[in-house]
Amino acid sequence: MSNVEVDRIIDRHGRDRSSLIAVLQDVQEHYNWISEENLGLVAEGLGLPLSEVYGVASFYRALSLVPRGKTIIKVCQGTACHVRGAQLIQEELERQLDIKAPGTTADFEYTMEIVNCVGACAMAPVVLVGDKYHPGVKPHLAKKLLVTKGEKA
């Protein structure tokens, strides 16, 4: 039950305002997104107004208030990746999946997110499929990434 898991997460970090972001991150880690119900539970559990918690959750891009797909694809848009064609990779993947980043496919298989630098700049352009880093991706070969379906690194 979600109550138990959210409670466990809050207990782990402490019932304090300063735990808010870590709690939200763990809720997302567990459920792949933060539902309205769970957001309310976090607010209640930490003794914070809903408007405050919603404000924090919507500010930080790593947190998602909408459901996400099974596999999360992140095309790095850092400068090094940009000068080596990251924009083209993104457009190609958007074409393949028929979505615009950030966005999720209708069947909830894939979510594409934009990330501003994962710190692997020497291997630009980088695409993350799930936890796996794909270095030196070529735009016209980007669609091959969709076959791997996010193996754990």
């Binding site: 957001l39 107004p49 809903l50 408007s51 404000g55 919507s58 500010f59």
Partner: peptide
């Protein structure tokens, strides 16, 4: 605490959580 600021940058907005009238 019925309203807050949400999102950020050019899309920053003011309002109740989820854009729905708040009980608070």
């Amino acid at each position: 605490h019925a309203i807050g600021m949400y999102d950020r940058g050019a899309t920053k907005k003011v309002g109740p959580a989820y854009g729905k009238g708040s009980d608070a």
